[in-house]
Design a binder for these strands. Structure first.
Lengths: 190, 190
DNA sequence: TGACAATGTTACCGATCCGTAACATTTATC
DNA sequence: GATAAATGTTACGGATCGGTAACATTGTCA
């Protein structure tokens, strides 16, 4: 389903795992279901990934590298224009946040397994800091007086939109994230 | 621990359940642990509440009635002054959101069991609409031109703060929720 | 074709968890 | 103190889940 059947099982398993983690949560899906969705089986899953936690970690690493590409896209699409990059970030974040098949695994994973001592904790923590640093620099480059507080606002909005979308769906406040975020951006830049 | 040992087991169980649901999530704690924390046992738990889902439902009902009291407090503390009530709402929401022993069970529960067909789904949905309606009216009374969008912003901020606090802790953006929210309020009211 | 690696299949273990049965104990009420 | 209700204790059933063992099958390369 998720991946073409004719690629190595390792990739099929990762794709299926990411899809199912997004849909049901990390603790909400079992390794059997992942293996089956990947048109594979539990044994080959455990031969490639020593444990479910390791599989989660690999999935997050892949999501992180895609997030890097996401960031590079924004810079490439609006070269030298920090303000335009910021607007583009808001627009793309809004797309990701309100789409079922979205790329917010990092946010979700953070909320799901931060309370336990998961091997991916430090990885997520580092990513969180990296993303914040990037966004602060972008806001500063766009002329924000208080870039730190601006990033606080954007962070809360995007995390809230993600949560709200999951629980309230298309009728909730998450669908107005872009509108709200653009307003906040304008407010901070003038 | 949670409640005085000398009150009926039903209350002790509810208190313990709410405490443990907050700390570990609804799916993250078992009925045995709840019964033990209540200085009771699983049998009396199941004699008072037919199932774990029913217990969850009762806990949410109790949290909802406390939320009503929270709302009444705000109105009583700032009689007739919608603007002051709004500031008070922001301040108190900030307290709730960034405290370990907080009253955001409704938000958390919504995020945790909205993806399944839980008996409390409709209850939470109705509460969500009620709280939104109240907040919209308050924003309108305070003079907001676009009260709906203002409530969208506040909703995303408070849900984001709740999520961020759980995953990022005291060092995260959630600790600046009040600052951000006050700024948004000012921005919408002028 | 032969040999070896990768993958698939089945079955199982141990732990956890929701829920119940049967029986013992305490508490309250008359 | 007797009676009945509420509560506590132990054990168990059924289901799910992470993880492993043993063996069969397929694919690859010489």
């Amino acid at each position: 389903m998720t991946a073409a059947v004719r690629c190595p099982p390792r990739e099929r398993i990762i794709d299926a795992a990411r899809d199912l983690f997004r849909k049901h949560g990390i603790k909400g899906i079992g390794v059997d279901a992942i293996a089956e969705a990947a048109s594979s089986n539990k044994m080959t899953l455990y031969r490639h990934f020593g444990s479910k936690d390791d599989l989660v970690f690999v999935c997050l690493q892949q999501a992180a590298s895609e997030a890097d590409a996401f960031w590079e896209d924004i810079k490439a699409a609006n070269p030298g224009d920090a303000r335009a990059q910021l607007s583009d970030w808001v627009r793309r974040a809004g797309e990701f946040v309100t789409v079922e098949h979205c790329n917010c695994e990092l946010l979700d994973a953070a909320a799901q397994l931060m309370e336990s001592d998961h091997p991916a904790r430090q990885f997520i923590e580092d990513l969180r800091n990296l993303y914040r640093k990037r966004l602060v620099e972008l806001c500063r480059a766009a002329g924000a007086a208080d870039a730190e507080l601006m990033v606080d606002a954007l962070t809360l909005l995007v995390e809230g939109a993600r949560t709200n979308w999951r629980s309230a769906g298309p009728g909730g406040a998450a669908t107005r994230f872009v509108k709200v975020a653009e307003m906040i951006v304008d407010d901070f830049l003038e």
